[in-house]
Nucleic acid binder design. Structure first.
Lengths: 335, 335
DNA sequence: ATGAAAGCGCTAACAG
DNA sequence: CTGTTAGCGCTTTCAT
């Protein structure tokens, strides 16, 4: 058994109150008692029991993070940022992989509530009324990362998806591309799918290019396969496309692989721009030009917002993070 | 404030002992009191406080996982496996990103101890006497994933690195390659670097190919850059190499990128085989032939071992997981 | 079948 | 400067 504050008190011939004071840097003891106690702690290898502390303080120094997919490069980059801030502030992070399943999500929310975490980070997933209700009942701060809620007033940190894809499209146009297509996410996805498609359409319009929804293929998700399987259909609609806007880097990589299979050279015959700037973007051939979300920073900022909300008890303001184009080699300048 | 067992007891007109019994499925109450209590719980939206429970039971239903790098594809795949098993068993997992820093690792170990986690999973990192001592003092089970300790008797789950690279080399030889080189990890790394290099050498010897340590370039790590920066040096030593064994998929991808920059076609002019089978392996061009570690399963198995050890109080046996060659398109058959 | 009470390890008044 | 004491929310004897 690990030793307790009582053991320390006994060994140092003081009361547990005194030990507690020393442990918590509260005033009220002489230097010599402090030394006695510190020595006893050292000898016993005593480490305070955070569970007992948590019970009385109602502070567990723990937050929960909900991801639809822990193993995606996007999630892990965000997690990395979260974890680093949490560590700086002496908090622990419990990861929860919801698998986009309502059942799992609810189970986790309950678990996190029972464990009395002090706040929740909800990443890359749509918020529903059901979850929002549960979280409200929990009475702890929540911040959304890489997602937002139109319906519920929850603070979030994300980039402006519409504007980011507008930038990507604008970049393509600036490189001389006039025949553009997009492989977008689900149209029903009001947070990431629809706005990105809108950004594309708006850019085409803004720069006076012919614009029709035909130029967009909506997919089920943002994965490699969604890109891989949809280049050919898109090309069959518009054989003279010179550039593709992908709704994620995974999709972009899928498009590049599909192009390779089809014998189409990227970027010589077809330019591709991605979205996210995950690790793979710089590792692939050709290195992927993409509009970057500052994923690591988003994790950090989200965590900072959450901790500030925990500390102040107030809700914090949402933050729109800057996106930026990372020029690599998958887009060719044409005339 | 969340309601407590006391509130429930009051509302149901019973003692807290009775409520506790019902909560824990212990015998000792009539069906009608049960209903009363359940109704009260429902009405109050009561959820037991796991902190208080943990204090008295000395069971936190929480484990800690230590990673050198949370955001690598390798880590996230393993974490995914761990998390799923933990979730099945009603446990939470606290992730710790050590950044391969001794200071961070020790800090985390202390934190996990104070939080009274029930076990620790130590992933992909070398075990030192210092950490081993701390963990011994904590008196909780530890299992190593994707690493092992020669010096300390800690259960682990991993593949046989020497044998895995032997297989990779054998595969290359079977495809007709006779001039092989390897880009390996650090030679001083007794767990992953050295054994993999040995597996390469042993295979060359076993199949009667000329074999010298010159054919290996030892790098600082297993990252993309290690591959990218070392293809040219290796080729300058042996310009007629037809195949490269990489010590990780990241390294392999780096090699392929370097080859591309050098105008060397993979696999037509140079074959490359990786190690790990992380997600990127199937996304790259050409899709990477590699020797797969069952990463997700390793996470699962490691977690299962840990929980079984927690439950039984005994140490469990180490497990060597099977590796296997995944044939894709980065290795060419030659005569 | 049910309740009273002790106590897990700790903090925070309250006394002195 | 230091000790005593009452809990935090729960489980678990021990009575009844």
């Amino acid at each position: 058994m690990a030793s307790t504050i009582k053991d320390v008190a006994k060994k140092a011939n003081v009361s547990i109150a005194t030990v507690s004071r020393i442990l918590n840097d509260l005033p009220g003891y002489s230097p010599k008692t402090k030394k006695k106690v510190l020595d006893a702690i050292e000898e016993l290898g005593y480490q305070p029991n955070a569970v007992a502390r948590g019970l009385i303080n109602k502070k567990t120094q723990t937050i929960g993070v909900l991801f639809p997919d822990v193993s995606s490069m996007l999630s892990s980059e965000i997690l990395n940022g979260i974890e680093n801030i949490a560590h700086e502030l002496g908090h622990s992070v419990i990861v929860c992989h919801t698998d986009s399943s309502g059942k799992r999500t609810k189970k986790y929310l309950q678990l996190l509530n029972e464990k009395r975490v002090e706040g929740i980070l909800y990443v890359s997933e749509v918020m529903t009324k059901e979850y929002d209700d549960i979280m409200k009942k929990m009475g702890i701060p929540v911040v959304l990362i890489s997602t937002e809620s139109l319906e519920f007033q929850l603070p979030y940190v994300k980039v402006n998806d519409r504007s980011a894809v507008f930038s990507a499209t604008q970049y393509m146009i600036n490189q001389g591309h006039k025949k553009l297509g997009m492989i977008s996410g689900p149209k029903e996805d009001k947070i990431a799918g629809y706005p990105r498609a809108q950004g594309f359409l708006e850019a085409l319009q803004h720069f006076g290019l012919s614009e029709s929804e035909e130029q967009i293929i909506y997919t089920n998700g943002f994965a490699y396969e969604d890109g891989f399987n949809n280049l050919e259909p898109l090309l069959s609609r518009f054989p003279d496309l010179t550039g593709i806007i992908a709704s994620s880097d995974d999709v972009a990589v899928g498009v590049i692989s599909a192009a390779y299979k089809l014998g189409i050279k990227v970027p010589d015959q077809l330019s591709v721009i991605g979205y996210d700037n995950i690790k793979i973007a710089q590792m692939i051939i050709p290195p992927l030009t993409t509009v970057a979300q500052p994923l690591y920073e988003m994790g950090q900022v989200g965590a900072e917002m959450l901790f500030s909300s925990i500390a102040s008890g107030k809700t914090v303001e949402s933050r729109i993070m800057p996106h930026r184009i990372i020029e690599r080699e998958s887009v060719k300048k044409i005339n």
